Simulated assay, not measured.
Amino acid sequence: MTSVPTVLLLSGSLRAHSTNTAVLRTAQAVTPAGLHTVLSDDLGALPHFNPDDDHDPLPPAVAAFRARLRAADALLFCTPEYAGGLPGAFKNLLDWTVGGGETYGRPAAWINVSGVAAPTGGEDAHAALRKVLGYTGVRVVEAACRRLPLARQDVGADGLIASPEVRAHLQAALLTLAAHA
C-alpha cells in the first residue's frame, strides 16, 4: 500500500488578509486526488530563534513545527518581500529549520505572487529564500516554482482565488512537487 504524499504549505505572511496565504488556502482547496496538503499555522507561534534553545526539550511551538516538517513529503512556500528581503517572522521560522535536519532532502518550491508594481517582483525575497533553503538541505524543484502576480482584489470574500488559471497553476505545482517526493 502506497501512502498519500503530504505537501506542507508555508506562508511568509502574518497579515490577516494576506494574498500569499490566500494562494496557499486556494492550493489546499484545489489539491488533486491522491495528494494531501497541510497549511502551516506555525509562523506567529514560534519564539524568536536562539541557538541556545535549539536542543531537547525544544520550545513546544518549535517541537510541533518540526513534527509537521517531518511528516511532510514536500514543502510549498509563498512569501511576500519586505524591504528587499524575507519578512522577519518568516526568516525566524526558517532559522528554526536549520538545526533540526527535518527539511534535508525535501523537495520544495515557492509561488511568487508579487504584483507588477513591486520594485523587484519579489525576486530578492526568493533569492534569500533559496539561499536559506540551501543551508537546510532542501531540494528546490524549479519546475514547481511559479510566478503568479496577484492583487488583494483577486482574493474573494471566502479568502480564496477564483481564477481558473491560477488554480491550474497551483494544481500543477502540487503535482510536480508530489512527483519529486
Rank of each mutant, 00 (worst) to 15 (best):
R130Y: 03
V38Q: 04
R15D: 10
Y82Q: 09
P51E: 15
I111H: 04
A179S: 15
N112Q: 09
A144P: 03
T19D: 06
P60F: 11
V155I: 14
T79V: 06
P149D: 12
V138G: 00
A74Q: 00
E142S: 13
A63E: 15
L24Q: 01
V62Y: 06
L24M: 00
A63G: 11
L175C: 10
H48L: 14
L174A: 04
D42N: 03
A172V: 02
N92M: 10
P51I: 08
G159E: 12
T31Y: 03
R152F: 05
R25E: 01
T37I: 03
P5L: 02
A151S: 14
V98L: 11
A45S: 11
L160K: 11
P119W: 04
R152W: 09
V7R: 01
S40F: 00
A151D: 13
A22R: 01
T136C: 07
F65Q: 06
R130C: 03
S163K: 04
A63S: 08
G122E: 00
V141K: 00
D52P: 06
A117V: 09
E123P: 02
V98T: 12
T136N: 09
F90I: 05
R146W: 04
T31F: 06
G115T: 09
H180A: 15
P119V: 01
P107R: 03
L10H: 03
H48G: 08
L76N: 00
L175P: 04
D56N: 11
G115N: 10
V166Y: 02
N112A: 13
A125F: 01
A61Y: 03
W110V: 10
T31Q: 10
G122P: 02
T97S: 14
A168K: 05
L86N: 11
G115R: 10
C78F: 06
V155Q: 11
P87E: 10
V132E: 01
G101Y: 03
G34N: 12
T103L: 13
G159L: 09
A117L: 12
V38K: 07
A16G: 11
P59R: 04
A108T: 09
A157D: 15
A16S: 15
P5Q: 06
T120V: 11
R66H: 14
A27S: 02
T97G: 00
A128N: 12
S163R: 11
A179V: 06
A27W: 05
F49W: 14
A45H: 11
M1F: 05
S13F: 10
L160V: 08
L86D: 08
V113M: 10
C78S: 15
F65E: 00
A127Y: 04
V30W: 07
T97D: 05
A61D: 13
L58K: 07
H169Y: 09
A67Q: 14
L170G: 14
A45Y: 02
L148G: 07
G84T: 13
H36E: 07
T103S: 12
T19R: 06
L150N: 08
D154K: 12
Y135I: 06
D54S: 10
A74N: 00
W96Q: 04
G34E: 06
A173V: 08
T103K: 01
L133T: 00
A16L: 14
L75F: 00
L160R: 15
L170V: 00
A64Q: 12
V116E: 14
R146V: 08
G84A: 13
T19H: 05
I161P: 02
Y104A: 09
G122I: 01
A143I: 03
P47H: 01
V4Y: 06
A168P: 03
P107S: 07
A157Y: 12
L133S: 04
